[in-house]
């Protein structure tokens, strides 16, 4: 999922740039507010939020404001203190994408790796009931575009936070560390293990054997996820990156098993 994002020139990005409608955003009072807050915000480690890379310069100013702020509805001027102001409760219009809002804020969660993935689904559906492009059929082209972008962002947020691996990579990114998924492995022990695992998957004939491997792999995934949490919380980021690498391989093995099942 994230591999495409890594490539700076990936098409999705080029398109994103094309399909966003910055003109209205630029006229938005938000941008001015953002600058007022810049000095305070610059003290905080806001670096390298993932979506911000792909959009135009002025949008970057949007990301600079952090948790405490008020947002103003583009349509009715209603002012909201919500961290994730995606939708105006006053006039029911959808707001433009604000790249400073991270995935955790969308779901009203603290910026923590550990979370109850089951709780995301309900919140996700609540958002879609407000933001889904199907519901703004009769509204302006501008708002329909906002709907498309916001709804896609919420979907991506849900997808990212649901899975351990993508959540780990995302939280690292929020802390300014980008993970290179394609990095070659140097640890011979891990290489050996992966080769054996792949062989075992390739050789297993029936679904019972595969399911057995799968539960083993999932157990490992869980273990490394725990190690990641520990490393991340004590800010040992190099170690955290290693954990993510492991998780990546186990996740891929899982995918392979599911494909065969």
């Amino acid at each position: 999922m994230n591999k495409t994002k890594k490539l700076v020139a990936s098409i999705s990005k080029l398109l994103r740039r094309r399909t966003c409608y910055p003109s209205t955003f630029r006229c938005n009072p938000l941008a001015t507010i953002a600058f007022n807050h810049l000095s305070r915000d610059s003290l905080q480690p806001c670096s390298a939020k993932p979506l911000a890379i792909s959009v135009s310069g002025l949008r970057l100013s949007g990301r600079a404001f952090c948790s405490k702020r008020s947002s103003v509805c583009w349509n009715c001027g209603f002012s909201s203190e919500k961290a994730a102001f995606l939708f105006c409760d006053s006039c029911r219009s959808i707001q433009p994408v604000d790249d400073s809002v991270d995935y955790f804020q969308i779901f009203g969660l603290e910026n923590k790796y550990e979370l109850d993935a089951g709780s995301l689904e309900g919140k996700y559906k609540d958002w879609q009931k407000k933001l889904h492009p199907d519901l703004v059929h009769n509204k302006s082209k501008k708002e329909r575009d906002y709907a498309a972008e916001q709804s896609a962002k919420v979907t991506e947020a849900c997808r990212t936070l649901t899975k351990r691996l993508s959540r780990a990579m995302y939280i690292m990114k929020l802390n300014g560390i980008n993970i290179n998924e394609e990095e070659t492995l140097t640890d011979p022990e891990l290489l050996m293990e992966i080769m054996e695992l792949r062989e075992a998957i390739a050789e297993s004939k029936d679904s019972n054997a595969l399911n057995q491997i799968r539960s083993q792999v999932q157990e490992k995934l869980k273990q490394w996820s725990d190690s990641f949490l520990e490393a991340f919380e004590s800010q040992r980021f190099d170690e955290a990156v290693k954990c993510i690498q492991r998780m990546t391989y186990y996740e891929r093995a899982c995918e392979e098993i599911v494909k065969k099942l």
Binding site: K125, Q128, K129, H132, D134, L135, V136, H137, N138, K139
Partner: peptide, 15 residues
């Protein structure tokens, strides 16, 4: 729903 009809009783609060 796609025509943007709103129902006061929430019967069209669907997606």
């Amino acid at each position: 729903v796609t025509s943007g009809i709103h129902d006061p009783f929430g019967s069209l609060d669907l997606l």
